[in-house]
């Protein structure tokens, strides 16, 4: 608990003092590794661990994308703040320390979850970059938003393929009609829409950027909303 609070505070401090991002990141990585060692598996099951993983992915990808941007400070501050926002709810949740249930005990499941969260994190960063572009009109932010979303889309697509393979071995079909799978497809279609709209002269620039930013809300609903509002076999 103390380490999570310290990490959140470090990320919040990083909004002003960038070096605190590295302090937060160090604690964050150490804690995720500790969680993995305690559970004896990748810590990616349950809302507590996925929030931790999501937040960590945001920070790591933000640091990787940062050099390609003109307005670095706004991006670093916003990314650190969003990492803190995703970590905050974990303070009210208990970690799942159970061993892997047999149906989840496969590399395909781990690939599926890890790559999904890489995708989610890059979609969040795409949203942040979209807001920076809409506010400042910096062309580098729009370009980086596109790259962030395209890479996120790649991770997410591979996650869907891995999920399909896992589902085939676990349940005998690569597709089930459940709200989670439905919203996963909706999210994928939505970002396909963004990637195509950006190619069209009528939507390129501001409209596409707004679409890319609004995608964060679709992603949030897919990640959290479905579990809260809809009954699904993919429960967190």
């Amino acid at each position: 608990m103390i380490i999570v609070i310290s990490t959140i505070l470090s990320y919040l401090a990083a909004v002003r003092y960038r070096f605190m991002l590295y302090a937060g990141l160090t604690m964050h990585i150490a804690y995720v590794m500790y969680r993995g060692a305690t559970a004896g598996r990748l810590p990616i099951i349950g809302l507590f661990d996925t929030l931790l993983f999501m937040s960590l992915s945001i920070v790591i990808f933000a640091l990787a994308l940062r050099p390609f941007l003109d307005n670095k400070n706004a991006f670093t501050s916003s990314s650190a703040a969003s990492a803190a926002v995703f970590l905050f709810p974990s303070l009210f949740l208990s970690p799942n320390n159970n061993p892997l249930p047999p149906v989840l005990d496969t590399y395909w499941f781990e690939f599926h979850v890890v790559l999904s969260f890489f995708g989610y994190a890059l979609f969040v960063l795409g949203g942040i970059l979209g807001i920076i572009y809409i506010k400042d009109k910096g062309i580098s932010a729009e370009r980086l938003q596109y790259r962030s979303i395209l890479i996120g889309y790649t991770f997410f697509s591979v996650a869907m393929i891995a999920g399909g393979i896992w589902a085939f071995y676990a349940w005998g079909t690569y597709w089930l009609w459940t709200p989670k799978e439905f919203w996963t497809s909706i999210l994928w279609l939505y970002y396909s829409l963004y990637l195509h709209a950006r190619l069209h002269s009528r939507f390129a620039g501001r409209t596409a950027s707004i679409l890319g930013t609004a995608g964060t809300l679709v992603m949030l609903f897919t990640y959290l909303g479905v579990g809260i509002f809809m009954k699904s076999s993919h429960s967190f």
Partner: peptide, 18 residues
Amino acid sequence: MTGIAGLFTLTLLMAVGS
């Protein structure tokens, strides 16, 4: 444009369907 309109409609229909 047809592709974009199609993707938009499909996304909307699936969201309503869910």
